[in-house]
Design a protein around this nucleic acid. Structure first.
Length: 786
DNA sequence: GATCCATTTGTTTTT
DNA sequence: CAAATGGATC
């Protein structure tokens, strides 16, 4: 029954109300006879897979959770599973919904499915990021959620500028209540799929004295007028579309016979609800993830989604992939031992493929300068041993740590590349250029128009713009239309009037050329005639040339699209800077951007209290924050194939001030038997590396009596006045019960933020309106009664 | 309207 | 010690 015809008979499998009634093989743990038979004469794509992996691929009926530890072949399972579904004819490409978080992951999956299927496959139209799939749904059915199908997608920058306008228009002090803060709040609500009227009272209280929800609503109505959505809306509106339109919901439910979700531990509430709408709770949904690698809680990810899977989906199967093909024994032991300190986890044991290998090293250095030097020298040593620079990476907690390495590597002439950083489409020149294109194609795109109306400088300042804005608002028309009306009046001073008239003429001209010119040519003309290119040509700063290059690159990337419209529809979601991976270079990146990557040698820099775990995480999220930091450490260690090298410095410059630091608690959480302590004193006899592991390391020869480590340890009590340590004590001890002692409206004191009033209690988290610092969410244990 | 200086504020990042 | 604001000045 695995042929194309069978897969088309969808209605037989559904009762009238759309409930899925599987008629084929039984669900559950054991493989059916047909599956076993298939395994006997296993198809080539199953070659070289272990038992768990095969089971994860072949168990295609019913809900399945695959807990895939680091380096266990997660992507391979996912892609082979899709291949299996296609090859056996269970579904056609358009009947498989497969979601990832990043475009990169989606691209890689498409690529790998292609090679598994052996050559050309009919594209997978529903393989993509949550956001791009939602865009696809919304463009098809835009009118059902009050949009036009050519709606614009605003990025964070547009979003913040829009919010700023709203805040100012509402006469709220934008200094105390920043647009950025409101954006974060609204994002948080959207991550939880809350519409303005669903925002909890207390939540709304923490912005502008309770006007949070009201501003959110204003923002939403403003977006509708602009025919725009922000990233959060893509999910929200898609949910609304499916909830409010039964026919559409059923159409897609029936269409998607198989659903696959990558990185399930990173899904937020909105994404979860979206999935629940499309998958029945006994449907064929396969979620792959690793609770130990959930590091995006601060951006709305709910680890709880993965922890709850078995309760959410009835008669679900859970498969653990524990066979690690990446790292050596010592590295895995170190990572496992560390992560075992977390309480909230499903638990997995990683088994190595390769035995032994080198121990994880811990090095103590005097300061960040020495750290960079020491790592630099080690890199040179490894390079001489024949390891390629591409196979080495330095992982840092915060991007501010990167500079030190860059400086050092420049002087040492070690080629490096920084991964992460501003993305291609976030660069100023790209966004400016896109704003021009948007304004040409969509005259009602106020945000685009406003962005470029005075870029390059045309002598149009706040005064003129203010006139335009207020006219637009009073007439309820877009800015560009308002401008058109005003250039024929005396409202605007003669000089700017002429400028604006010229600008409008240019736009009209460009618009008239849309159909006659090739879109790439038109793009060039727009940038040329607007004076934008010239602006950068005149600019003598170092970056100017790079910006011009980026603009050329932008035009080149337009070539792949039919027309400018098509280009703009996809650009905000898809365009990214595919950095050159050609030459051999050491990689420098944050721990976050390292997820999913692997290297022979990994240098883990800055394992110091306050930096890693980050003080702020601890302050704001208490134990959950600490556990997320620990998962970050776990992610860091498990990136290493052959060698993981941990460093901590005694002194580090924080906000420009040198501060002495203590080793991260994570260092203490490593298993001594898998760790070697490196004596850095051979390169700097001022300082000696040390540790409590001294006893274990005697045989390796070293001087291990007192120095930094013990001194560092002793520093803790004497440093008790400094926030970190005190807080830590409380933090671990505190639990939700303690928070119950507080009452709404109570006046309290916080070490960092001063006096304030409690406006909301949420477990052990308090929302407080501070007299000086504005509203903050803090952990109850940091707060004192007064 | 543009430019310069002072003040402030500092994670992590995808879409 | 930066970068990124914002206000004050030209």
């Amino acid at each position: 029954m695995q042929n194309k015809e069978a897969s088309q008979i969808t209605n037989d499998e559904y009762s009238e109300d759309g409930i899925y009634n599987p008629v084929s093989e039984p669900l559950g743990e054991s493989l059916s006879i047909s599956q076993q038979a298939r395994m006997a004469s296993a198809p080539p794509y199953l070659d070289g897979l272990n038992d768990e992996q095969r089971k994860a691929i072949l168990t295609i009926e019913g809900p399945l959770l695959v807990l895939a530890g680091a380096g266990t072949g997660k992507t391979r399972v996912l892609t082979t599973r899709i291949t299996h579904i296609l090859v056996t004819g269970k579904a056609r490409p358009s009947e498989i919904l497969s979601v990832t978080f990043t475009n990169k992951a989606a691209r890689e999956m498409k690529h790998r499915i292609g090679s598994l299927m052996g050559g050309v496959v009919e594209g997978m139209p529903w393989l993509g990021t949550f956001h791009s799939i939602c865009v696809k749904l919304l463009r098809r059915h835009a009118e059902l959620v009050g949009l036009k199908s050519n709606f614009t997608i605003l990025d964070t920058d547009d979003q913040i500028r829009l919010l700023k306008q709203i805040i100012e228009a509402e006469d709220i002090d934008a200094k105390k209540w920043t647009p950025r803060g409101l954006a974060a709040l609204i994002d948080g609500w959207k991550n939880r799929a809350l519409t303005p009227d669903q925002v909890p009272q207390g939540d709304a209280m923490i912005f502008a004295n309770g006007r949070g929800a009201e501003l959110y609503e204003l923002y939403q109505s403003r977006l509708k007028i602009l025919n725009a959505v922000d990233f959060g809306d893509l999910l929200m509106e898609a949910i609304r579309l499916l909830r409010e339109n039964d026919d559409i919901l059923h159409k897609y439910r029936n269409q998607f016979k198989y659903i696959l979700v990558d990185e399930y531990q990173d899904t937020n509430v909105a994404q979860y609800l979206w999935l629940r709408l499309l998958a029945r709770n006994d449907g064929n949904i396969c979620c792959v993830g690793d609770d130990d690698q959930s590091i995006y809680g601060w951006r709305g990810a709910e680890v709880d989604n993965i922890l709850r899977f078995e309760k959410d989906f009835i008669s679900s199967t859970v498969i653990r992939l524990e066979h690690n093909y990446r790292s050596t024994q010592h590295i895995l032991n170190a990572a496992s031992h560390l992560i075992a300190h977390n309480e909230e986890r499903l638990g997995k044991t990683l088994r190595p493929d390769a035995k032994d290998g080198e121990k994880v090293t811990v090095s103590n250095v005097w300061d960040s300068v020495e750290e960079a030097r020491s790592i630099g020298e080690d890199i040179e040593r490894r390079q001489r041993d024949g390891i390629c620079l591409n196979e080495m990476a330095i992982l840092v907690r915060t991007s501010s740590q990167m500079r030190e390495f860059e400086d050092r590597f420049v002087t040492m002439a070690i080629p490096y590349r920084v991964i992460g950083g501003p993305r291609f489409y976030e660069r100023m020149e790209i966004r400016d250029a896109l704003a021009y294109f948007r304004a040409v194609l969509q005259p009602a795109d106020d945000l685009a128009f406003e962005r470029i109306v005075n870029t390059p400088k045309r002598g149009l300042g706040n005064a003129t713009l203010g006139i335009l804005r207020s006219h637009a608002r009073s007439e309820q028309i877009p800015l560009m239309a308002a401008t058109a009306e005003l250039v024929d009046t005396e409202e605007v001073k003669p000089k700017p009037r002429k400028t604006l008239r010229d600008l409008l003429e240019s736009f009209a001209r460009w618009r008239s050329q849309i159909d006659t010119l090739k879109h790439t040519e038109l793009a060039e003309i727009i940038l040329e005639e607007s004076g934008y290119t010239e602006m950068w040509q005149r600019d003598k700063s170092i970056e100017a040339q790079g910006r011009l290059d980026n603009l050329k690159e932008l035009i080149r990337s337009m070539d792949g699209f039919e027309n400018m419209q098509g280009f703009l529809e996809h650009i905000s979601l898809v365009l990214d800077s595919e950095s050159q991976a050609d030459e051999a270079k050491v990689n420098i990146m944050t721990l976050h951007s390292a997820k999913g990557l692997e290297f022979d040698v990994v240098y883990l820099s800055g394992w110091e209290e306050g930096l890693f775990p980050s003080q702020r995480s601890l302050d704001e999220n208490g134990r959950a924050g600490l556990e997320e930091e620990r998962r970050l450490a776990y992610v860091g260690i498990t990136r290493a194939k052959k060698q993981a090298k941990i460093y901590f410095a005694n002194n580090r410059r924080i906000h420009g001030m040198w501060q002495s630091t203590t080793p991260s608690r994570f260092v203490d959480e490593l298993p001594a038997k898998d760790v070697a302590v490196i004596d850095a004193s051979n390169s700097n006899n001022y300082n000696q590396a040390i540790s409590r592991f001294a006893a274990h390391d005697m045989k390796f020869g070293g001087s291990y009596s007192t120095p930094g480590w013990q001194r560092a340890k002793q520093k803790k009590p004497t440093q008790a006045k400094r926030e970190p340590q005190i807080l830590e004590g409380n933090l671990i001890a505190s639990s939700s019960e303690e928070a119950l002692d507080f009452m709404l409206g109570e006046r309290i004191f916080h070490q960092k933020f001063g006096y304030g009033k409690i406006i909301q209690i949420d477990g052990n988290k308090l929302s407080i309106d501070f007299e000086k610092a504005g509203s903050k969410k803090v952990v109850a244990s940091f707060v004192e009664k007064v």
